[in-house]
Design a binder for these strands. Sequence first.
DNA 1: TATGAATGAGCATTCATTCAT
DNA 2: CATGAATGAATGCTCATTCAT
Lengths: 199, 199, 199, 199
Amino acid sequence: MRKTPRQARSRQMVDRIVAAGRDVLVSDGYDAFSTNRVAAAAGVSPGSVYQYFPDKAAIVDVVVDRYWDDVAEKVAAALADRIGTFGPAMVRDTADALIAALEDDPAVLRVVAEELPISRNRDRLTVLERRVRDLVATFLAARPETSHRPDPAVTAWVVVIALEQLAVRWVLDQPPVTRDQLVEEILALVSGYLSFGDR
Amino acid sequence: MRKTPRQARSRQMVDRIVAAGRDVLVSDGYDAFSTNRVAAAAGVSPGSVYQYFPDKAAIVDVVVDRYWDDVAEKVAAALADRIGTFGPAMVRDTADALIAALEDDPAVLRVVAEELPISRNRDRLTVLERRVRDLVATFLAARPETSHRPDPAVTAWVVVIALEQLAVRWVLDQPPVTRDQLVEEILALVSGYLSFGDR
Amino acid sequence: MRKTPRQARSRQMVDRIVAAGRDVLVSDGYDAFSTNRVAAAAGVSPGSVYQYFPDKAAIVDVVVDRYWDDVAEKVAAALADRIGTFGPAMVRDTADALIAALEDDPAVLRVVAEELPISRNRDRLTVLERRVRDLVATFLAARPETSHRPDPAVTAWVVVIALEQLAVRWVLDQPPVTRDQLVEEILALVSGYLSFGDR
Amino acid sequence: MRKTPRQARSRQMVDRIVAAGRDVLVSDGYDAFSTNRVAAAAGVSPGSVYQYFPDKAAIVDVVVDRYWDDVAEKVAAALADRIGTFGPAMVRDTADALIAALEDDPAVLRVVAEELPISRNRDRLTVLERRVRDLVATFLAARPETSHRPDPAVTAWVVVIALEQLAVRWVLDQPPVTRDQLVEEILALVSGYLSFGDR
DNA sequence: TATGAATGAGCATTCATTCAT
DNA sequence: CATGAATGAATGCTCATTCAT
């Protein structure tokens, strides 16, 4: 007749703390992020935080990790029903999925992308990178006859950076560009790049 | 019997403090950046710092501003003797100039781009933006007959973001891409993008 | 189906906790001595500790008490088969027995004598005191004809303090004095003192 | 017309903090000794403490050092006008001077001798040791014809420990021994020891 | 009984900022 | 102007103790 099984209770505490961490990050900013504030926001004592996290940095790390995992999951989900698309359509779909995922929580994106030491975000790109590598590969496979970029690894690196940064800046800076326009421009950028040298 | 006029002395103090700020930022990192440390590094008392800067943030702001001004100046200087180039050559020159400027002080670039809250970098892009706007305009002027990007403002926004981020990441992440490769890829990216839709 | 009667189980818990307390004291020192650590070392939950000890200090007290009881027991045992010796021989035997007892566990002696608030050691001397009182009495009884110390209680107090401290410091400070030398010096000190005024 | 010259002000702060440290140690005990409490007792902010002491331990060290310096000074002063005394008189004088010095501040003596990790007191004995070495040497010089302790270094070690501990315990434990009795017993102890073997 | 999650007061320390000199 | 001693709020973190299960 246990109300909260041991495992679940831990899980719940971690979740509460992470949620509170996210909130503090969003509303107070990274500089004002303190363990005491997180504890207060979680309705928990400072000591309790340390039963679940070894130190302050670990809380931030989990918040960031969860955010990017979330984004990756959304991108994967959005693309799941479109497998099989090729070339341009795939670019469009990927850009669209990424933008959509980033639009979901701009507040955290702002903190994560703009306030955090980049080191905390270092390993987050794996999923996007894999996706882009595939994208580049299938795109090129669809146009085997043409002359194009020589080194696929370099090409993927270029596309990842451009794609990611365009999506992030669009969400955060709200430039005078519509969402559809953005997707079209990304399509043009990537397509033009990948086919460059065609004749 | 005053050696230096008041104005000049102020200027000198500001310079000392900013230089010290830069050094502290580079060697200790943003987290360890403290007014006391800056004062010590400048050989000045903490109180004096507050005669020239309202608070700690203002010091960082000036360091960042000066850094980006410096970059802008270098880019402008590098391009000064190449005015009149068109299209692809201009893209190449711009990319090259930007990379060169960023390579000059990677230590500060690292702090500025990776550790600082991005808000501090907000207004830095004006020069680069103007330059890229010109670049886009002249490029398109060279190919007036072709169909290409519809909105020059949007196009410039896209190119700025991609160009800047590629140059920054290349300098900071040292990816397995040579400098020449990078310039070629940027050229391909921008040229492909700007001419996309040509036939 | 209870394996161990309640009483015995309590006893066992207390023993585990005290043993763990001793270990923590020895390996981590008094400053790092914490109830949680003791509980962990005992393989017991922190809550359980409080079923047997009212607070942290009580654990230390028992560790200390047991240590001194142990020493007292060893001294008594060592002297048991030498009852009947008189004067100098008895001094020598007592000194020897005490040194031997202290040598048995220098690690705990160090903590108990050097790190603990001495108040915790307050009542430990009873056995040694009684033994020394006897020693003084028999010594004097062996030389009834001579003039010597007037007040046996004071005399015993002096001898206890000197004897104990010499033995403890010798064990802990490892001075350049051999064990035999030490015993000889103690003998000289005590004998000289007790017979002082002889002619 | 400066009220407090720079040097003097520092000195004054250090003194205030050390005095507060002493008071906290005496009234709250070593376990409750905290930087915040010291700061409060000194009527100073916690931050100020750290302008004069690198950490908590440093405050304790200075308190202890000052205490023992003080004792050493008093002993030296008390003996200054008695130089030239020999043998028994010198023992009496030394014992008397030491007891007097320790009696002056039993509260601090209690903390220093009973609550502090002994390591903090390690180097304090130099003065007493030198004094005792001299004492032993002159004593023996006065009785060159007699047989006595073989190793002067060992002899001095024994006398230091006994003398110091007897004086300290007498002050702190208030045993049923008068001050004069104590001095007489110490004289008997030391004299008997040093002349032991005489005939 | 035994548990161990939760507590929260407390600690040592830092640092942006002020202000009397 | 320049100083730098002084501040004190705030920080990350610990640990003796409690109490619901």
